[in-house]
C-alpha cells in the first residue's frame, strides 16, 4: 500500500509535473515536494511525489556496498 517508485521529473507547471516512470509518462502532483526540479527523481506514491530522491546518498550507499564487497574477495 505504501508502495512508492522512482519517477523522473520532465517538466513542471505549478503543483503539477510531467514525470517518466520506466518509460511511461504521466501527470503527477508535486504539492508535497515543492522543492522538486526538472531532472530530479522523486518517490511517486498514488500520483503524488512524496520525496525527492537524494542521488548523492544513493551513490554513497552503493559505493559502500561495493567497497564492502571488494573486501570479501
Amino acid at each position: 500500500m505504501c508502495l512508492a517508485i522512482p519517477a523522473l521529473v520532465k517538466s513542471i507547471e505549478g503543483n503539477e509535473a510531467e514525470a517518466e516512470i520506466g518509460g511511461i509518462s504521466r501527470k503527477i502532483s508535486i504539492i508535497l515536494t515543492p522543492e522538486a526540479r526538472v531532472g530530479d527523481y522523486v518517490l511517486l506514491h498514488t500520483g503524488y511525489a512524496i520525496n525527492v530522491i537524494d542521488e548523492e546518498e544513493a551513490e554513497e550507499t552503493l559505493k559502500l556496498f561495493e567497497e564492502m564487497a571488494s573486501l570479501e574477495e
Binding site: L32, T33, P34, E57, T61
Partner: peptide
C-alpha cells in the same frame, strides 16, 4: 539505511 528516500526530519511540507 534508506538514506536516498528518508531524512531524519521527514517531509515537513507533507
Amino acid at each position: 539505511a534508506y538514506r536516498r528516500g528518508v531524512r531524519p526530519e521527514g517531509n515537513l511540507r507533507a
